[in-house]
Design a protein around this nucleic acid. Structure first.
Length: 405
DNA sequence: CAGCGTTCAGATGAATCAACGATCTACTCGTCC
DNA sequence: ACGAGTAGATCGTTGATTCATCTGAACGCTGCA
């Protein structure tokens, strides 16, 4: 037993493909950022006034996930801060807040509390009226002459939960401040976020706008190459590996984060297989693994009713295997009722089940097409979209969590 | 056989409900002057 | 008297139900060539 373990450890130590794995993690901030020079320059010139202690225009940055928005903005923020410090001044504060951080900052209160604590103020744990926290915040930053640069990442998420008058009051805060001034940088994933925003907010927040276009495969390659050089040991990557990674990620709206994940996971797989090199096959497995993990995560973390319904779909699919007969909503509902009876779960109405099936469709777990069968009415024709291995694993998870078997 | 109304089974919408979390308000209690 | 802490009151969300309305092609009936 321990011999075997030793062997595993030995090979792990000796066959380490990585020089520094953290470089491929998404939270790593590289020294220089390829491709985004133009955007960085723009951000820099828009924010430059704060170096002289003047207020910069509010900036709004759009772009899909993994296009380097956050990275670029933070990079510029750090550079500016460093510059100001080099000049021996301290009139600048840069605050970065991710509005979507796992349930942490998703209300107006919490965001302001977060802002206060970033500024070194103490945050009352609970219960203060929002207005009071707000005025405490104003007092805090207005206590001396300074410029506050607030970076609100994934701002669209916040606005979905809170009303947009939070941002409005932020943008308008400058008129209340006597000493300090604030500039806001909003970062949003969705391109049409601005459209359904209050016009007053739109004009004040979007004084300057910047769009980060998705990377294309070539640009992704460049990024990957740069990081791979320092992340992996010499000569570990086989020919074409980077290109393939880039191609995969480019297909998914040019998400660089995805590309890096892919490369990292491929490396891990190669390592586990005790391979000296990372080849194209590893990229494929990595892609599958990521896909699989994501899917299984959705399935296992879903509410019980979702699992019940998915289980009935899977059973029906198993039964219909071979025949080309489709699965229809009615079948699913009947089977679902049976399972509920058996497991003593509440039975939802068909209306709800129909909605849940539509959700599955959105998640890509099933493919549902609304068809009309003439006299036999209208229904969804459902196809399960899970690959065999995922299906097997998912079935286990479901039966486990539902107490079936 | 084209044209037309019927019909089916569930899609899709809208209003409403119930339960839960989070916030707000008001009241109580301890402490300090 | 004042502030802190806490117990209901209140508000907003979200998943779910109920009621209502739509839907689109096969089916079957008509009428015409």
């Amino acid at each position: 037993m321990s011999d075997k373990l030793d062997k595993i450890f030995d090979s792990f130590v000796s066959n380490n493909l990585f020089k520094n794995k953290s470089i491929l993690q998404s939270n790593y901030t590289p020294e220089n950022i390829p491709i985004r020079d133009e955007q960085i320059d723009s951000v820099g010139s828009i924010l430059a006034p704060v170096i002289r202690g003047e207020r910069a225009s509010n900036l709004f940055v759009y772009g899909k996930t993994g296009t380097g928005k956050t990275l670029s903005v933070r990079h510029v923020g750090n550079k500016i801060l460093k510059r100001v410090e080099e000049m021996g001044q301290n009139h600048l504060k840069v605050i970065y807040i991710n509005c979507k951080m796992k349930k942490v900052s998703d209300t107006e209160y919490r965001i302001i509390a977060e802002l206060i604590s970033e500024l070194g103020g103490k945050v009352p744990e609970t219960g203060l009226p929002t207005g009071q926290v707000y005025s405490r915040f104003v007092d805090l930053i207005d206590s001396k002459k300074q410029i506050i640069l607030i970076i609100l990442d994934e701002i669209d998420q916040a606005v979905q939960k809170i009303s947009d008058n939070f941002i409005y009051s932020l943008t308008r805060m400058n008129s209340e401040l006597k000493n300090a001034q604030i500039s806001i940088v909003g970062i949003s994933n969705s391109l049409d976020f601005m459209d359904n925003l209050d016009p007053r907010v739109r004009s004040s927040l979007g004084e300057e706008e910047l769009v980060f276009a998705p990377y294309n495969a070539l640009q992704l390659q460049e990024i990957l190459k740069e990081r791979a050089d320092i992340a992996f040991k010499e000569g570990v990557l086989e020919e074409g590996v980077i290109a393939k990674c880039a191609a995969f990620a480019a297909r998914e709206h040019g998400d660089a984060r995805r590309a890096l994940d892919l490369l990292r996971v491929a490396g891990e797989i190669a390592e586990r297989e005790n391979n000296k090199k990372i080849n194209l096959g590893h990229i494929d497995s990595a892609n599958q693994k990521i896909e699989k993990d994501k899917m299984l995560d959705v399935i296992s973390s879903g509410p019980k009713q979702f699992q019940l319904i998915l289980h009935s779909v899977m059973q029906l699919e198993e039964k219909n295997k071979g025949s080309d007969e489709g699965i229809f909503t009615g079948d699913v509902y009947n089977r679902y009722q049976e399972i509920c009876e058996k497991t003593k779960n509440e039975i939802l109405t068909q209306r709800r089940v129909s909605d849940i099936l539509a959700d599955f469709d959105m998640l890509g777990i099933i493919n549902a097409r609304v068809i009309s069968k003439g006299r036999q009415g209208r229904t969804r024709e459902i196809k399960l979209m899970l690959s065999p291995q995922i299906k097997q694993k998912a079935l286990e998870i479901l039966e486990d969590s539902l107490g079936l078997k």
